[in-house]
């Protein structure tokens, strides 16, 4: 079983708050989303970028850099959301093929033949008030918004909430919310 790497959080709380504030959020919290990283590079070469995906994601995220910016410590504070199993190799191939057709510049870059590595991607979750409460998912690496992760995050938050409610009667009086890996 491949060990799950933890990517180092580059956007600190102050920077995340600043960005989320611009997007209308009134509250924020850190989070970790478990995805699967597959190397991208020239044929028979070293990875120069990584495709971050999950079975439920329709388009993958691109992480540029020869090495995954991993840290030694396990994910620190924040809700942890597991996206489930990795896409099949065939699905990954197709995913990358369409990315390449959509951006012909990427045509020469290939998906390297390697097992997907599980990684914890640091994120920031912003909550914005309005007619409804709205969620914004921000990358903890680049600070970019990641709308494609939203369905996974929402599902994960719902699971965390249900787990918390299910365990509430057993641990009555527990005031602190439990953050579980789902």
């Amino acid at each position: 079983m491949v060990e799950c790497l933890t990517l180092a959080r580059r956007i600190d709380v102050a920077a995340a708050q600043k960005r989320l504030q611009r997007l209308g959020a009134h509250a924020c919290e850190p989070a970790w989303v478990r995805l699967w990283a597959t190397g991208l590079g020239m044929a028979d070469g070293q990875p120069g970028a990584w495709l971050l995906s999950a079975q439920e994601m329709r388009r993958a995220l691109l992480l540029v850099g020869a090495e995954l910016p991993a840290q030694k410590e396990k994910p620190s504070a924040g809700v942890k959301i597991d996206s489930g199993s990795p896409p099949t190799p065939k699905a990954l191939d197709r995913l990358w093929l369409w990315e390449r057709i959509a951006t012909p510049r990427h045509w020469r870059i290939q998906l390297l033949d390697s097992t997907p590595i599980p990684i914890w991607l640091p994120c920031w979750l912003g909550y914005a008030r309005g007619r409804h409460l709205r969620l914004t998912v921000l990358s903890g690496l680049s600070g970019e918004t990641l709308p494609m992760l939203k369905p996974i995050v929402l599902k994960g938050l719902q699971q965390v909430y249900q787990n918390g409610q299910a365990s509430a009667p057993k641990s009555s009086g527990a005031s602190k919310r439990r953050e579980t890996v789902v």
């Binding site: 709380v13 708050q17 504030q21 009134h26 509250a27 909550y127 938050l157």
Partner: peptide, 11 residues
Amino acid sequence: RADNAQVIGKE
């Protein structure tokens, strides 16, 4: 979640 998250200033 929002109730327990850190509050950010003015929108």
